[in-house]
Design a protein around this nucleic acid. Structure first.
Lengths: 140, 140
DNA sequence: CTAGTTGCAAAGAGTTTGCATGGCG
DNA sequence: CGCCATGCAAACTCTTTGCAACTAG
């Protein structure tokens, strides 16, 4: 692992991401948050790659999105051991910290011979809020 | 829905895809299979979009892949109602036609207020074959 | 004959790379 | 002062779009 310096830009990036340890951000969005501390998109990409290598950030290529999203993996809530639910309407990400998900993984491992990496696996659908909104629209 | 003609290229595309109703193909791979019947990549994209609109094909943006993959949805095995397991090592896709997956979806709907679209959701991990290969490598 | 389809090229979006300049340690 | 990081531009990949020529019906 190569030596790294602390720079204004990198600190700002880590500061922002670690303040939102469980959310998915596009590079576009991250750039907007840098407020002049990391002006080149290429630098954002380079720092994100570096953080991915070090296991602090995870990169996702999501259903419905054209570009990748990045997620900071906090120390305590590592997001590596549970499924995520992503709403196809509003894009919100929920964490499924639930024994049923674990059960399914164990079952698949035992009976289907496949080891699921639940942290990498996203279940897509529609969240409660968006379902309510849809119903309202139909009424109106 | 607009009128469509039958053309050599389009027929070849549908013929190829429908012969493999449950696999994921890249545009690159599809082009290779067209054998001169559909020479422009843009035409392949256009036909795939059309088939997506009609619900005969589903487009995926997969974890680990840089480009999209396309899957033909057969009549009987629609793939809309079960999870898929995708191996991060070899890329193979398995169909999880299993009550445990259904149970999890119901549970998430009931207890987490989120309606999962299991057909769009892919569980990533490592398949049995690749696990065996890994073990062999360690031994050798 | 008319409207949909193809092939090619150009344009776009997202991401990566090369290189000179600048800044951390 | 040496090495890493940044910024900018160029290159690259994947996908979409525009347009003239072609063809199914």
């Amino acid at each position: 692992m190569s030596k790294t310096y602390q720079t204004k830009g990198r600190n700002k990036l880590i500061e922002f991401l670690s303040a939102h340890p469980d959310e998915h951000f596009s590079v576009e969005r991250i750039c907007m948050e840098m407020n002049g501390n990391l002006n080149a998109k290429s630098s954002v990409y380079r720092n994100l790659s570096l953080l991915c290598e070090r296991g602090r950030v995870r990169k996702f290529k999501g259903e419905g999105e054209t570009s990748c999203v990045y997620q900071y993996l906090g120390r305590e809530t590592s997001c590596r051991d549970h499924f995520h639910l992503k709403c196809l309407e509003c894009g919100r990400l929920e964490h499924l910290e639930c024994y049923m998900g674990d059960d399914l993984c164990h079952h698949i491992g035992e009976h289907h011979g496949f080891t699921v990496d639940s942290g990498r696996s996203i279940l897509y659908g529609v969240c409660g809020d968006c379902q309510s909104k849809k119903k309202q629209k139909i009424v109106v």
